[in-house]
Simulated scan of single mutants.
Amino acid sequence: MRKHAIGCVYAIGMCILLSLLTFNNICVTRPSVQFKHNQDDARPSRTCASPKDCPSNSIAVYIRSGLANAIGPEICINGELILSGTKINVGIGLNTVLLNGSSGGIISSGFYTGADKMLDFLRGIGPGQILLVASYDDPSIILKEESRELLRGLGSSAAQTLGTRDGWLFAGQKGAEGSAFEKHISSDEKTNTFDKWPAVIEISGCFKKT
Rank of each mutant, 00 (worst) to 15 (best):
N95T: 08
A159I: 10
C206V: 08
N57I: 04
E189A: 03
C48M: 13
D41I: 01
V61C: 05
F170I: 04
S32G: 02
S109H: 13
S179L: 07
P139L: 03
S32F: 03
G91A: 15
A60M: 09
G172N: 04
L94H: 02
S84H: 07
I63L: 11
L67K: 15
L20S: 11
C15I: 14
G153P: 01
S84Y: 04
T191G: 03
G178R: 07
R148K: 14
I201R: 00
L83T: 10
R165P: 01
G105K: 14
A11E: 00
T47S: 08
R148L: 02
F170W: 06
Q39A: 14
E189F: 00
L162D: 05
G79C: 00
K52C: 04
D116L: 10
T96N: 14
C48D: 14
F207R: 03
M118I: 09
G178E: 07
I75A: 09
D41S: 11
V90W: 12
Q173E: 02
K117D: 12
Q129E: 15
N24L: 12
T164Q: 13
Q160L: 13
D40E: 09
F23T: 11
Y10M: 15
L150W: 06
D166G: 08
S187W: 03
A171Y: 01
Q129V: 05
A60E: 08
F181H: 06
S84F: 05
S187I: 04
I82A: 13
